[in-house]
Design a protein around this nucleic acid. Structure first.
Lengths: 195, 195
DNA sequence: CTCATAAGTCTACAAGTGTTTGATTGAGGG
DNA sequence: CCCTCAATCAAACACTTGTAGACTTATGAG
């Protein structure tokens, strides 16, 4: 409350660090690991490029921290959703919302996609997505081929996000959410429960 | 067989051009537009970097030519497949095959994904994928919400490819093709025909 | 054999990157 | 008040990138 926020910012390590992290998230989401420059990230945080390395060691470590934070967002495949009677409908609704243009809950995944050109960034993303997958399994899925089924739902989410947010394929980007939900609900139900 | 392949290669403009194009495709698939360097592409074709610009004008023009060629590959949603009684099974089989590790038929799409960080490259990819979607619609799909249904199959393919080829999520990358086909067939059938 | 011409290479540059070194500035404890 | 130390910056480094112009070499016609 008493702290100056938008003012020329008092010297404060914690605040500056947070500002850099936030600016980096925006930049990585928009332009990917290679596309986002350290100077650009620094400017977005109101500091110079050098501070980025001072606080995070390197661009790569900064990236890893951003990805880890963004990936910590809650999964769609929660225990509650998966075990509900209308699991398909519930998950479809959340999936459509999370992949809408401008939606941020899946930022972590989007960053990873946009950063796939960089080898190191891709490795970091692989690890984080793998973790997320396993977390989902432990939390919500069980039974025969549970890993594959959970992964297929993840893949469907990924494809939807790619087509809606990255490629902006008109048929999906401009479709009525209700229509998408109606078509996806039985599909997801089928993926989760089998025929 | 009769041609000299690994030999010091005779001077031949057409052959060299083709070699550069092929090397560029491999490089762009693996590392994306920004990640693949002109020198690297040239080396893969057994020439020096300057020849790339000599033959294609610039890296961007080379990229556009590679993408156009790679996108010309046939779609999975052919008229024959979509209208078959076992459409789901047929398409599932082709989808699993086309998204296997090392598979090339969807290279164009993979290039586009890996190149999404570059703005120009992304634009080129959007246009090409939009074309492909419309081509599919005209060729194979019809009926209510045909555009959305076709797009959802495209999205599922994209997600599968992302998870299997890019992220290499173990559950999907190492899964038995038969298992994946069995789980995907009814899902695709449902997407195409509705409940 | 000769030699014009196309095919290919060498050297170089200007612009960009992430990162580092050494100096500057502000804030707070003595 | 002063003095110390952390927070910050400016400049430069080492490197890579795409691209351009001048140079060399093989090829095939005469």
């Amino acid at each position: 409350m008493a702290a100056t926020k938008t003012a020329p910012r008092r010297r404060n390590a914690a605040t500056t660090r947070a500002a850099i992290l936030e600016s980096a998230r925006r930049a990585f989401v928009a332009r990917g690991y290679d596309g986002a420059g350290v100077r650009e990230i620094a400017e977005g945080a109101g500091v110079t490029a050098m501070l980025v390395n001072r606080y995070f060691g390197s661009k790569e470590k900064l990236f890893a921290e951003v990805v880890a934070a963004a990936m910590a967002a809650p999964s769609i495949l929660t225990q509650e959703n998966v075990h509900a009677a209308d699991a398909g409908a519930r998950i479809a609704r959340e999936m459509v919302a999370a992949t809408a243009a401008g939606a941020t809950p899946l930022d972590g995944f989007l960053i990873m996609l946009r950063s796939a050109s960089s080898e190191r960034a891709a490795e970091i993303g692989q690890v984080e997505i793998g973790k997320r997958h396993e977390r989902t399994l432990v939390d919500a899925m069980s039974g025969r081929d549970a890993a594959v089924r959970a992964a297929l739902v993840l893949a469907l989410t990924a494809g939807l996000q790619v087509m809606r947010q990255m490629i902006a394929l008109p048929a999906l980007a401009k479709a009525e959410p209700a229509v998408l939900q109606r078509m996806l609900a039985p599909v997801i139900q089928l993926l989760l429960r089998g025929p």
